[in-house]
Computed example of a mutant assay.
Amino acid sequence: MTPETPGLHHVTAIAGDPQRNADFYVGTLGLRFVKKTVNHDDTGTYHFYFGDGEGTPGTNITFFPWTDAGRPGRFGAGQPKTTAYRVPADSIEYWLERLESNGIDVEREERFGETALRFADPDGIELELVAAESEAQHASETTSGNAASNETEATPWAGGPVPTEHQLRGFRGVTLALDSFDATAGVLTDVLGYELEAETENRRRYLSASGGPGSVVDLVESDAGRGQMGVGTVHHVAFRAESVEEQREWREAFADHGLSPTEVIDRKYFKSIYVREPGGVLFEMATVEPGFTADEDIEELGSTLALPEWLEDERERIEQRLPPFDGPNAGAEE
């Protein structure tokens, strides 16, 4: 029997200027800069990870900053549209004021009984902050067995610019834009174990078996035509796999569904497989271990350019090619 993923592991997008990207996600959103490394497939490009105090899986948004000379992307069908974070219900007004005071246009929406603040980052990538019901309560009401053990709880970042009581609590979910629902919905339900939770005329909400943090995938239909990858678009969505053994089961399940997953790839901080689902979105299955402390202590996360062993001999050349970057400006706690 194919395992059931508890939800998201990370989301990876393409940014422009690396300094602007880091200043926004750390200084404005209050995420911790947990890893500075390079794209293993393009070592002239940084790979930034922003997450909670420990870089817990299910809290990390990551970026390939192509600089402002990078090719602009075009949003459309076959792409992730929105990445949503959880915030405490009583933090919505704090975040509305914080975002607007930073010159960010914010739209407030009610959807499926939740309040969401929708806005874009400096490169145009759409984000939401969602005041949701307790996912732990939902899981206990709708599932049994080990649902609670699969949940990811965010670790506060004591040194961050946002008070710990208002900090982002990891992912709520993602929204995928598609030409049509059915083929992608089939992968979610038949392979990943998601269930249809709610729907409106133009949106379907799917929930993972655990119902915990990062468990939501919304599907919306788009008539914008196919998107083009580039600055300002999301590259892929990664789901959690508990182990390499479980990952191999996912690989077989994708193949049995008629898809073509990659072999297991070592990404230093997790092992990964990738597959393009029928609607065009790139999915990844990423393991929880070994995590970001594989090469840095918790206290030092993000403080150096971390390279995997197979790139260490190229460090000098890689550092010379990378664009200027001074590290994120975290601002001051309010």
Rank of each mutant, 00 (worst) to 15 (best):
G145F: 12
A139M: 14
T143M: 09
R205V: 12
N202M: 14
E199L: 11
R98W: 02
T152H: 01
L188Y: 01
N102V: 01
L117A: 00
A198G: 05
S144E: 04
R108M: 05
E114D: 13
S215K: 10
Y94P: 01
T184F: 08
Q167D: 08
F112G: 02
E93S: 00
G214I: 09
A198R: 07
D179V: 13
E151T: 13
T152S: 00
R108S: 05
E195K: 07
E114G: 14
A120E: 06
F119S: 07
F119I: 01
A139F: 12
G145I: 12
E201I: 15
A116V: 00
E128P: 12
R169W: 07
A132N: 15
S215H: 09
E93C: 06
E201T: 15
R169V: 06
G103C: 02
G193S: 07
Q167E: 01
V106D: 02
P163V: 05
A177R: 05
A158R: 02
S144M: 03
T175E: 08
E128Y: 04
Q167P: 04
D105K: 06
T142Q: 05
G214T: 11
Y94M: 03
E97V: 06
L196K: 06
Q137K: 13
G170D: 07
A209C: 10
G103S: 00
E199T: 09
E135C: 15
E109K: 13
S144G: 07
F171C: 10
A136E: 15
V106A: 04
T115N: 01
G159A: 14
L129C: 11
L168W: 02
R172A: 13
G145Q: 09
D179E: 11
E126Y: 13
E97M: 02
A131W: 07
N202S: 15
L168V: 03
A183Y: 15
L178G: 00
H138C: 13
G170Y: 08
G211Q: 10
R172K: 12
S210P: 13
R172D: 11
L207T: 12
A148M: 12
G113Y: 04
R172Y: 03
V174P: 09
A116T: 06
L117W: 10
G170E: 10
L127S: 10
R98D: 05
A148L: 13
S210K: 12
E165S: 14
G211W: 08
A147H: 08
V191D: 06
T143N: 04
E195H: 06
S180D: 04
G193D: 12
P122Y: 11
V217L: 14
V106S: 01
T143W: 03
N150Q: 06
T164L: 10
E153N: 05
E93K: 07
P156Y: 10
G124T: 03
S180V: 06
G193E: 11
S140P: 05
F171T: 07
D218E: 09
S134L: 12
S215G: 11
D123A: 15
E199D: 02
F112D: 01
N202G: 14
V191G: 08
L168C: 03
P156S: 14
E153V: 05
